[in-house]
Design a protein around this nucleic acid. Structure first.
Lengths: 219, 219
DNA sequence: ATTTGAAGTGAGTAATCACTCATTTATTCA
DNA sequence: TGAATAAATGAGTGATTACTCACTTCAAAT
């Protein structure tokens, strides 16, 4: 059993095992930490090597360029960051009435993302920070969103609209408001005011209530 | 009259005239553009000098270090970015019944911020991107917010809570939801999907409606 | 025990970095 | 006009950058 198991798990694509030598795992771990702390552009490969306890040349054995190293972190994790829906349960369960309301669905989505962000905060920082600078990353994220999230999300919304549970706005607007509200809470909680006193359960329920009242069917 | 008038205006603190030589203005303009596009760490002073049409030494005549140049952009504009309330009238007008409802207040705030972001997008990008990497900037923003926005915002909320217009949640929670909703819209509109087809008036009204329904007094 | 290919190393490289400073150019005012 | 001051210059600095490569170490298979 591997001490870097969480990394192996995180980097899996389609649940296929990924093989990482011990040094390679240490490089990735160090890179994640430092890119999150100082940003990609301000982090040097020599610093990464030092923190990983590895010769600088070793980094370039595994990754042709520094940018390749960044993408080796970002690309295989995009799906896990932006498409929780692929944690299969989600969509299926909605239509199998696992969730009897949009609210229950939102609650599950929110708790799922809350735990993910809490567990992988440095990775989230990297996404948040580097998306602004690397067009490829932004494009990959949008592609994954369109392919794996958008249509399913839309169908869920239309399902609950048909049931008269939520307001008859365009699905795009509802998606935007839902994501904005959840992401806004998570960023405030973990990036803007991580040192505040948070009653997470309470604040999530308030946020869900706010979202549901904002999206409630109007008479 | 100066062709860099917008810069002069933007950099004013307490409405006091700021004197910028022509070259100095060009340096600031170039720095704002490039920091916004590539990020502070990935932008070299030689590039800035080139774009500004100035010798590299000239930059360091005016700003001791590259970081000084960044702070010369950020520090004097913080108030304008995070404290629209200081466009003083705000609070006063609320209590003088300029705004007869929280909704009218939110609408004015939103339109005000919409125009500001639209007009100063590169500056907003710099704030958004560099706050993550420079603790001083984050601290300055929080200080300005606490000194100039927080208490006033809180009083406005309590005023409309007393009138029974909005829900009796802690002011902190209402502030968070309000800001999250407005900022979420503006970031989606101008940074995430700037190329989408937006009916800005319509989308703002939807967002206001969403926010007001989410914060409405509950029975 | 020997072979072999992969993994790892670290000194070396050219390019670029932020920043300096002696000098030149422009501006101000007597 | 000329002297004094300020603004601007660009070649030069040492440090650091991402990346290379000849070489060593390691692990597994024969």
């Amino acid at each position: 059993m591997n001490e870097h198991q969480w990394l192996q798990e995180l980097l899996k694509v389609n649940n296929e095992e990924v093989k990482l030598s011990d040094k390679q795992a240490k490089i990735l771990e160090a890179a994640i930490e430092m890119f999150a702390e100082k940003g990609y552009a301000a982090t040097s490969t020599s610093e990464i090597a030092k923190r990983a306890g590895v010769a600088e040349g070793t980094i370039f054995r595994h990754y042709k360029t520094k940018k390749d190293l960044l993408l080796a972190i970002v690309t295989p994790t995009i799906t896990k960051v932006v498409a929780p829906f692929l944690a299969k349960e989600f969509v299926k369960e909605v239509f199998e009435h696992q969730y009897k309301s949009y609210e229950d669905f939102i609650r599950a989505l929110m708790k799922n993302r809350f735990e993910f962000v809490k567990k992988h905060l440095p990775l989230i920082r990297i996404f948040w920070q580097e998306t602004a600078f690397h067009a490829e990353i932004k494009e990959q994220i949008q592609a994954v969103f369109m392919q794996n999230v958008y249509e399913k999300f839309k169908r869920i919304i239309e399902y609950f609209q048909a049931k008269g549970e939520i307001v008859e706005l365009p699905a795009n607007a509802i998606i935007r408001m839902t994501i904005t509200t959840i992401v806004g809470f998570l960023l405030t909680r973990f990036l803007v005011l991580p040192d505040g006193q948070w009653d997470d359960e309470l604040e999530m329920e308030r946020t869900i209530r706010f979202l549901m009242d904002g999206l409630a069917k109007r008479d």
